[in-house]
Simulated scan of single mutants.
Amino acid sequence: MKKRQKVTIKGTKEGLVLHLDDSCSYDELKRELDHKLSANSRTQDERHLTSVKVDLGNRYLSELQLEELKNLIRQKKNFVVDDIESNVITKEEAKELVAETEVITVSRIIRSGQVLEVPGDLLLIGDVNPGGTVIAGGNIFIMGTLKGIAHAGCYGNDRAVIAASSMKPSQLRISDCLNRTPDSIESNEMREMECAYINEDRQIIVDRLQVLIQLRPNLTRLEGGH
């Protein structure tokens, strides 16, 4: 029977990809990795650095073990660790992911001086008065009038959107883009059922709510229980 390889090395245009077996012991994996990298490094041009990406599969490694792997690879002359990927995440990372994708529903009026911030999507049933601020890591949906400040995608999500029943904000922010008074909103005009998003030129655009169907189809991810 052919012995199963614990380490598979594949060359790409960017460098090397190491696929590590996730069913053997960690010590066995390190031994074979050390052996194969030593053999491979002898065939590499020492004048150039080689980028290495590591695929752990369904194996979880502690921070100490990850550092051991990085050091083992770095010791082989011209290898540089570019990335280490794993299909497994910690409970803390899972909780953070759930929080960032969860829709938080709040029913209240955000008055002047008040700040409402959530890690994921925000569904606000109420108004944001002038001087009030709502901040979300994801999208912001307001079933009411937006007259204050709204900041969606505050952790750097350029795909986040802001939608409101009545859009008359003092400031819109999405990710790191800022629009103090959207050009499409007149000072004496209150628009109904509109949304704001970042376009290809990294400008905040205010448009009809219906455009989100084409621009952000993933907003319907909860339909049918998905």
Score class of each variant (00 low, 15 high):
Glu63Cys: 08
Glu67Ala: 13
Pro217Gln: 06
Ser112Lys: 10
Glu67Arg: 12
Glu186Gln: 14
Ala94Lys: 15
Leu122Met: 08
Lys6Asp: 01
Glu189Phe: 14
Glu85Ile: 10
Ser23Met: 06
Leu146Ala: 00
Gln210Met: 13
Leu215His: 12
Glu46Cys: 05
Ile135His: 01
Asn129Arg: 05
Arg202Tyr: 06
Glu192Cys: 11
Ile213Ala: 13
Ile198Trp: 10
Asn157Thr: 10
Arg159Leu: 08
Gly113Glu: 06
Thr90Ile: 08
Ser187Asp: 14
Val54Phe: 04
Val81Phe: 07
Ser165His: 04
Leu178Ser: 07
Pro169Ile: 02
Cys195Ala: 15
Lys2Phe: 02
Glu85Met: 08
Gln214Tyr: 10
Ile149Leu: 08
Val103Glu: 15
Gly131Ile: 05
Arg42Pro: 05
Arg42Ser: 06
Glu14His: 10
Asp22Ser: 07
Cys24Tyr: 03
Ser170Gly: 03
Asn78Tyr: 07
Asp55Ile: 11
Val115His: 04
Lys77Ile: 14
Val206Leu: 01
Ile213Leu: 12
Gly224Thr: 03
Val52Pro: 02
Thr90Cys: 07
Gln114Ile: 03
Leu64Tyr: 09
Leu29Trp: 07
Ile213Thr: 14
Gln44Tyr: 09
Asp127Tyr: 01
Lys2His: 00
Leu222Ala: 07
Ile174Trp: 03
Arg4Ala: 09
Leu29His: 05
Arg4Cys: 00
Tyr26Gln: 10
Gln171Arg: 13
Leu61Glu: 07
Pro130Phe: 03
Val206Pro: 05
Val81His: 08
Lys13Trp: 00
Ser184Pro: 00
Val17Cys: 07
